[in-house]
Design a protein around this nucleic acid. Structure first.
Lengths: 199, 199
DNA sequence: AGAATTCTGTAGCGGCCGATCCAGAATCAT
DNA sequence: ATGATTCTGGATCGGCCGCTACAGAATTCT
């Protein structure tokens, strides 16, 4: 009935994610996007609506391919307490390997887009809730398994871990130093260990 | 020898701080700045150079009036351990009262300006080091005073507190909820308390 | 083949951007 | 008063912004 799209939408969105991720929402122009997606401006608007709509789609894509993928992978491979530990340590490693300090698209968006756009802010908040859910779920499973102190409060500790995660992501963008980032993570992980106080 | 400035530079910079703080560096136009500073564009360029130079000056002003002021005030009024506690709790309260979620100019800049401008990134990193210095200094003083566990490692805990601080500031911009922010802060403060595990 | 529909490249819209120019107003030293 | 110097408002610069209009290319149906 009609002409076919000459590009793959999925690949195009992936390219757009990289573009937004590297420069931030505001500093990314529609021409930047079209260029790195390998399509013309008209095709972009035809396929994705406008810049903001494309960004919302990029957030979802990013959540699926980065955040949710990591949670599912670690939850499958590790027992609950180790999954939490591996999550935080993987973020530290990623932040250190991230030479141009792009950080995390969700955390970046939480700071510079969320507060100025209610719908995007709510979406970002929902993604962060998913991460907190990962922490809470695994804390509770670990408590049932007896691998974390019995008196642990999943509500408090999951919130703490989410805050620590965002702190690591934020700090890493201007001070990507292993010792520093590990010092942020370690006391939080120590909450999951029995009695010993090591710091 | 020449005509006098018709405005007060200090007041003008304060207004510029508010403007950058509310909208972010990139989203603030020179016209926005001139308007809320109450001066014309020519005067702005004449007195402050260009937009970026003005921003650097705003960062310094902000650090003096917000971050350094708070550290000095709390350090004077409280014994070391209480100063740390009061610092974090004050940030939580400020974040909750901050209806339009402006957050902290330094933290915001750490995420969206720092990584794309080396000089500004280094400046922001230096301001963050000052805050970590506040934590470290007070941890060590508290240890000498015997009000924190003897085995505490000031290097690790000061890093952790800095990360937690940034996490609170970041989280508060999309999820300004008391229970959540307090759950981020409380386990960090518990590191300063003896034996008991309350998380 | 031809009609109908959708995609694509190009050109262009009005609008704002950071920055500069310039003429005139204000101040000081002489 | 006069000249030197600096500040100020307003106009303006080239350039990029998000977005759209439009004509033609590509595809499927009849």
């Amino acid at each position: 009935m009609a002409r076919l799209k000459a590009f793959d939408e999925g690949q195009a969105v992936d390219a757009a994610v990289d573009c937004f991720w590297a420069h931030g929402y505001g500093a990314t122009s529609v021409r930047d996007l079209a260029d790195c997606m390998g399509i013309g401006g008209a095709s972009l608007y035809n396929a994705f609506g406008d810049k903001r709509t494309l960004f919302v789609r990029c957030l979802e894509r990013y959540a699926n391919r980065s955040s949710r993928e990591r949670m599912a992978r670690l939850e499958e491979k590790h027992p609950p307490k180790d999954a939490i530990r591996a999550f935080l340590l993987e973020i530290v490693e990623r932040s250190l390997k991230d030479r141009d300090c792009k950080g995390c698209l969700l955390v970046n968006s939480a700071l510079d887009v969320g507060p100025h756009d209610a719908a995007i802010g709510a979406a970002v908040a929902a993604y962060l809730d998913e991460i907190r859910g990962f922490f809470r779920r695994n804390i509770e499973a670990a408590r049932r398994a007896g691998t974390v102190p019995r008196g642990i409060d999943a509500e408090t500790v999951s919130g703490h871990l989410l805050g620590v995660l965002m702190g690591i992501r934020a700090l890493a963008r201007v001070k990507p130093e292993r010792k520093l980032l590990e010092s942020v993570a370690r006391p939080a992980l120590a909450l999951l260990e029995p009695k010993r106080r090591l710091n």
